[in-house]
Every structure is written in structure tokens, then in C-alpha cells.
């Protein structure tokens, strides 16, 4: 298991380790659509996506992209931290051939009771650096020598 990340080791401006997925193919897209039982044709019917809806190609599911952002943050927080809050907007479309890289940068740190809360700017860039899912997140981390974040997480532990 990875070393726990402690609040004291995090500073504003730090980049957390990125998480890359891709290149995405139509097979990856339909695997997700089938797992979700989402039959929106823009994800698998090229003729419909480009002809009827005027899109550049079939699209990578937004519902898939959100979990990549969650994985980025959960993997970083580790088994003693907790991904508390995450928000993002679907701003950009992604198509087969794209490689998506989830990234996060620390924008704030606050000590709260026995824990630390780290604020981050997050997003999901394509291979050309174009940002498609900008957002923010709050991750709760243990202090050095302190207890791990209790599970299930109750925000009351921060007061």
C-alpha cells in the first residue's frame, strides 16, 4: 500500500500525481455504455452522432469522465484520507483517439480539529492540453502522528 499522505506534507501550488486514461476507442466507450445500460446513441451510433446531432464523432461519456476525477483524488488521499467533496462542469467533448489526463493542484490548506482539509483545482485535459471538465475538490487528510480520517466520514469530525 502507498505511504499515507499527511496534511503537513501538502502545500499550496503542489501538483498531485496525474492519472491518464487512453487513447480512448469506441470499444472503451461502448464498454462503459453497456455497463451503465446507457443507450444514448451519441456514444455508439456514428451516423446519428455526426449526422443527426452534428457532433464531430461519437462522444466519450461524461458519466465515465467523472469517475476518473474521483479515482485521481481517492488514489491520492489513500486509505487514511478521504475524498470529501468534488464538483466539475462538463465543458468539453472528448472523442475516440483522445487520451485524458486527470490532474489536481492544491489551492488551499486548512487545519480543522484533528485533521487537515486540502482544497484543489481539478480537471481532465486531452492530449492537446485542452481542459474539458474543470472543477474543484476538498480532500481530508490526517495530521502526522494523528488518527486516520474516520470511516464512514462525518463532516462533524472537522468541528
Amino acid at each position: 500500500m502507498a505511504e499515507p499522505v499527511y496534511f503537513e506534507s501538502v502545500a499550496v501550488g503542489d501538483d498531485i500525481p496525474v492519472l491518464a486514461k487512453g487513447p480512448m476507442t469506441t470499444a472503451h466507450i461502448i464498454r462503459w455504455s453497456a455497463a451503465m445500460e446507457n443507450w444514448h446513441k451519441i456514444h455508439y451510433d456514428w451516423r446519428y452522432a455526426t449526422g443527426h446531432d452534428g457532433l464531430p464523432d461519437v462522444l466519450v461519456n461524461g458519466s465515465w469522465k467523472q469517475h476518473v476525477l474521483a479515482q485521481l483524488l481517492v488514489d491520492w488521499a489513500g486509505e487514511t484520507g478521504w475524498l470529501w467533496k468534488m464538483n466539475f462542469q462538463y465543458r468539453g467533448m472528448n472523442i475516440p483517439g483522445d487520451t485524458l489526463t486527470a490532474w489536481g493542484r492544491v489551492t488551499g490548506t486548512r487545519r480543522r480539529a484533528d485533521y487537515g482539509v486540502v482544497e484543489l483545482e481539478i480537471g481532465l485535459k486531452d492530449q492537446n492540453g485542452r481542459e474539458g471538465s474543470p472543477g474543484t475538490a476538498s480532500v481530508v487528510l490526517p495530521l502526522k502522528g494523528g488518527p486516520g480520517v474516520p470511516y464512514p466520514f462525518d463532516p462533524a469530525v472537522l468541528h
Binding site: W39, K41, I42, D45, Y90, S133, P155
Partner: peptide, 29 residues
């Protein structure tokens, strides 16, 4: 288009005569 227009189980359907539907994003806790 293959998309269900029911937003959520248990919520009334929206009487809005627009055919396109997109997910704008989420805020999670």
C-alpha cells in the same frame, strides 16, 4: 436518441417541450 426523459425515479416528469438533454455537471459530497 436512446435517452430516457425521466429525470429521477419518484420525481414528476418535467413539462418542458425541449427534446435535447445534456448533463451539465455534478457537485458531490
Amino acid at each position: 436518441d436512446g435517452v430516457s426523459r425521466a429525470m429521477r425515479p419518484g420525481l414528476p416528469k418535467l413539462p418542458v417541450p425541449l427534446s435535447g438533454i445534456l448533463n451539465g455537471g455534478y457537485e458531490y459530497e
